[in-house]
Nucleic acid binder design. Structure first.
Length: 569
RNA sequence: GCUCCCAUAGUUUAAUGGAUAGAACGCGGGCCUCCGAAGCUCGCGAUGCAGGUUCGAUUCCUGCUGGGAGCACCA
């Protein structure tokens, strides 16, 4: 319906000599303003030399010459808005149409054939998978799924620092621990502690600092068998632990890139452009002077001859397009503390390989902070993702204590609710600003929360199950009885496919999160205002059809946020 | 010091330059002999300050105030 109206308005805009780019339809907040609204007359009044109201009248006159069947009325309101009201019957029929789409509701083919890589999470082996990684993962996964729904072929990528000073610090400390513990291997948590211990020693102990720097070099050139063995074991242990976390979060990566490999590729690029005016030598290091572009200077090769993160990333981004020359877009999700760094990197990339750079997009997110409670962030205190999830899990367990679940399904339900609660808290607001996660009060499972959405979906599912048990059919497509007036639920539900596209094009999961919250509220009101499953009511099959469409929208909408719908809760 | 980002009810936040700034938590009322009350329903309550652009500014521009981040061999 929206597409048909836009098409017609574009046609009229062309006829009247208006800017067709200004043709946009919005959903008015006030339902008295109809289902769709256009400000085209306001936007073009000045250029056309007419008053907004006069221009609106001309447009409406043209529009009425051939009015689409589903339109109930067209009115000019306020300063010159054109408001469209849709027939209730047409909205009901739209719900029938959406119901037929089933699991494909919201999918479109606009980006079919496009290959898009999304890089996110990026934890470093030897260090803990912390809540920053959790946040990046939630956002990156949701963006990946939004892109996937538009028909593109998404390649999920993970970029991990398996070499560098942080690794040397961990290996240095691990060596000492191993000497004292019968040569037993360290698990992922101990490796995380080893890193922290090594990092402290590096700051305070000059002997340790020298040893760590030597280990760093040995890791790069793999010259010491004992170090190699320790390093290989630690790397694998960390990566295995990360896989467990991805499974829990519902992410599966297609590609793992490592700094060890890309660093060598990056070095070649830097050395190849050393005399080309991009890089220069300074104090023994090779640097890029960004000041001439309004940026800052960054080191690419250290005075010790080792590549820095920037060089490794230079290799990485070329490698992505070497692997997939037909990549249409490369999206990189990181924390916003890297925003300025990325500006420098993208400038260097633009100077070296402009075509790749055009297709590369950096998305920056904020950090997860805690207002109060035992997880409130103290300086230098890194919170493991697992700690947060377990904390929320225990809250969920308390909350669900009164519910009778089978032992086997209880664990799955609690995990689904806990992860859903955390993901929703991250995705409900605009990417880029910090998420304030108050572990004392804000993890309520009421109102604006993941569990609220899951609850509405579970409830809808239980209604449908009851109908099936009572043998009431869900909206037979021929001879379905429609109500005279449609509820706000159907109106909102009909926007779902359009909202998915908007969330995708703006890289904004929060558009979906917000929409689902309002939608769930409308369903809850719908549910409260009449009995849906009622063998005596001729409208019951229609109500069930609306419920079915609602559930499909919730399932797909929550899936786009990376949140599952439990069977019960 | 320089650069970037942010500022909306008590709190956490939404709003492709548009109409009466939308929610949630909290607070105060009402609703379970009816499909799951983790729900529904009614009420109170907000655009940091000063200018500018515009028919129209939470949104764009300038300054100020307050907060966060980054700025040479870390990632």
């Amino acid at each position: 319906m929206k597409d048909t109206l836009v098409e017609k308005l574009v046609h009229i805009a062309d006829m009247l000599g208006l800017d067709r780019e200004t043709v946009r339809l919005t959903y008015p907040e006030n339902h008295e303003h109809g289902e769709f609204s256009s400000n085209i007359a306001l936007a073009n009044a000045k250029k056309s030399g007419l008053r907004p109201h006069e221009l609106a009248e001309r447009i409406v006159t043209e529009f009425k010459k051939n009015i689409p069947e589903f339109v109930a009325s067209v009115e000019i309101a306020g300063p010159g808005f054109i408001n469209f009201k849709i027939k209730d019957r047409a909205l009901s029929e739209e719900i029938v149409r959406l119901a037929r789409l089933g699991a494909d509701l919201g999918r479109s083919g606009g980006e079919a054939g496009r290959k898009i890589m999304v890089e996110y999470t990026d934890p470093n082996p030897f260090k803990v998978f912390h809540i920053g990684h959790l946040m990046a993962n939630a956002i990156g996964e949701s963006i990946s799924r939004l892109v996937e729904f538009s028909g593109a072929n998404v390649l999920r990528a993970n970029w991990q620092g398996d070499v560098g000073p942080h690794v040397a610090k961990a290996v240095w400390a691990a060596r000492l621990v191993k000497d004292r513990s019968d040569g037993r291997n360290l698990d992922a948590a101990l490796w995380g502690k080893a890193y922290a211990a090594g990092a402290r020693a590096y700051e305070t102990d000059t002997t340790a600092k020298a040893e760590i720097e030597e280990i760093n070099r040995k890791i790069y050139d793999r010259s010491d068998p004992a170090i190699n063995a320790l390093y290989d074991q630690g790397r694998q242990t960390s990566l295995d632990a990360f896989e467990g976390m991805y499974k829990r979060l519902g992410t599966k990566f297609d590609h793992y890139f490592f700094e060890g490999a890309e660093g060598r590729e990056g070095e070649e690029i830097v050395r190849a452009h050393l005399d080309g005016g991009i890089f220069e030598k300074s104090e023994g290091a090779i640097v890029f002077k960004g000041e001439r572009f309004g940026l800052h200077t960054r080191v690419f090769i250290t005075s010790a001859g080792l590549p820095t993160y920037e060089t490794k990333e230079l290799g990485l981004n070329r490698e992505k397009f070497k692997l997939y020359p037909d990549l249409a877009q490369s999206i990189i999700v990181t924390g916003n503390e890297q925003s300025d760094y990325f500006k420098v990197l993208l400038k260097v990339m633009e100077l070296i390989y402009p075509k790749i750079t055009e297709k590369t997009k950096h998305i920056a997110h904020g950090i997860l902070r805690f207002a109060s409670g035992k997880m409130s962030s103290r300086a230098g205190n890194v919170i493991a993702a697992e700690t947060l999830i377990d904390e929320i899990k225990s809250l969920v367990e308390k909350k669900t204590a009164g519910r009778a679940f089978k032992q086997a399904e209880a664990a799955e339900i609690v995990d689904s609710i806990a992860v859903g609660a955390i993901k929703y808290a991250i995705l409900r607001q605009a990417i880029g600003s910090d998420v304030i996660f108050d572990s004392a009060t804000s993890i309520s499972f009421e109102g604006d929360s993941g569990p609220y959405l899951q609850y509405a979906a579970v409830r809808a599912n239980s209604v449908l199950e009851k109908a099936a048990a009572e043998g009431i059919t869900v909206g037979p497509e021929g001879g379905l009885e429609f109500p005279n007036t449609v509820s706000p639920l159907e109106k909102l539900l009909s926007r779902f496919p359009d909202l998915v596209m908007r969330a995708r094009s703006e890289y904004a999961p929060q558009i979906m999160a917000n929409y689902l919250t309002v939608l769930a509220g409308k369903f809850n009101s719908f549910y409260a205002s009449q009995v849906i499953v009622d063998g005596q009511n001729k409208l019951s099959p229609y109500y069930l059809l609306v419920t079915k469409t609602f559930l499909a929208a919730m399932r797909n909408g929550l899936w786009l946020l990376g949140i599952g719908v439990p069977k019960k809760m």
